[in-house]
């Protein structure tokens, strides 16, 4: 800015004017007439408002349509509380498992060179492109009464389907890529120099990981956990297939939304939905903040 200023001061007025004109002409080459600009902005804003903002607003409007007391009463129902508890439990299990997997997989993939790396990443990404219903179905085919391990499980009296293990498994499947995908590019970019220095100074592998690698990737870990958790708590299709919908036992929050909605208990359904919507909003805000941290780290490296 100051450079430009100094530059224009040394120019004669007519020259400066000519420069301004040239800059304006260059900008004109890259933009559209005012009317077109207004139409495009209006279309974008209108579309996002109708398709994205309004559905969010409707959730809260419906949840509070009978007042705040009805809202709180709906959330205090034993069925609601047990759904909230189950959702937190399942999210804790699958986020925990995927966090450990993500760190281990990112170490192997980002810090070493080997053949078939791209293919391995594609395999880790698979759950993103599998329909949620199919993600649940595969576990029914494995652990259901007619499934490959169904007989064995029955003989040993182990309940997987229609119980917490099945719900946790399906959720883990669906959220599998999140942490690993957040960490792999980040760790690849950071290279291996710092770790190599630590090792050559005599640190053990685990010490190196916890003292050198982990501090460098902490924002990335948080980012992955955040997205993983949001999906784990909100998953519907996969969980719906394996849950068995046993009231007060195997209904997560999204499943309870469906049941209450189908029973025309709209305030209760939207009250639970509003909690999930708040989770989504908090996740988005935290994600924006974390992205800023990640960008700053990125800028510092270069």
């Amino acid at each position: 800015m100051t450079m430009q200023l100094a530059d224009s001061v040394s120019l004669s007025p007519s020259e400066a004017k000519a420069r301004v004109h040239a800059a304006a002409a260059r900008n004109n080459l890259r933009t559209e007439p005012r009317a077109v600009r207004i139409v495009i902005i209006a279309l974008a804003v209108l579309f996002l408002s109708v398709f994205v903002v309004l559905p969010l607003v409707v959730v809260f409007a419906q949840a509070f349509s009978r007042g705040i007391l009805a809202y709180l009463a709906a959330l205090a129902e034993p069925e609601a509380l047990s759904a909230i508890k189950l959702t937190l439990l399942v999210a804790a299990i699958s986020v925990g498992l995927n966090l450990v997997f993500g760190l281990v997989a990112a170490w192997a993939i980002a810090k070493f060179d080997f053949k078939g790396k791209t293919f391995l990443i594609t395999l880790i990404d698979l759950p993103f492109s599998v329909s949620p219903v199919i993600s649940g179905l595969v576990f029914v085919l494995l652990f259901g009464a007619q499934g490959y391990f169904g007989g064995w499980l029955r003989d040993h009296d182990i309940q997987v389907l229609f119980a917490v293990p099945g719900i946790a498994l399906a959720t883990t499947f669906v959220t599998f890529p999140f942490v690993a995908r957040a960490l792999i590019p980040l760790m690849q970019e950071q290279g291996t120099q710092e770790e190599e220095a630590a090792i050559s100074l005599g640190a053990s592998g685990l010490q190196t990981f916890f003292r050198v690698t982990l501090p460098n990737i902490k924002w990335g870990v948080l980012y992955g956990v955040l997205l993983c958790n949001a999906r784990a708590m909100g998953e519907f299709g996969a969980v719906s297939v394996v849950s068995g919908h046993i009231r007060g036992e195997t209904n997560t929050m999204p499943l309870l939304v469906e049941i209450l909605y189908n029973e025309y208990q709209f305030v209760a359904a939207f009250a639970i939905a509003s909690l999930l919507a708040m989770l989504a909003l908090v996740t988005l805000i935290a994600k924006t903040v974390l992205e800023r941290h990640l960008d700053e780290g990125h800028a510092r490296d270069h």
């Binding site: 309004l54 409707v58 419906q62 909100g234 519907f236 929050m253 939304v257 919507a277």
Partner: peptide, 14 residues
């Protein structure tokens, strides 16, 4: 970010 079931009931209500 919005759980699909929430989007479903919201769009239906809308």
């Amino acid at each position: 970010a919005l759980p699909t079931a929430v989007a479903g009931v919201a769009l239906t209500a809308l």
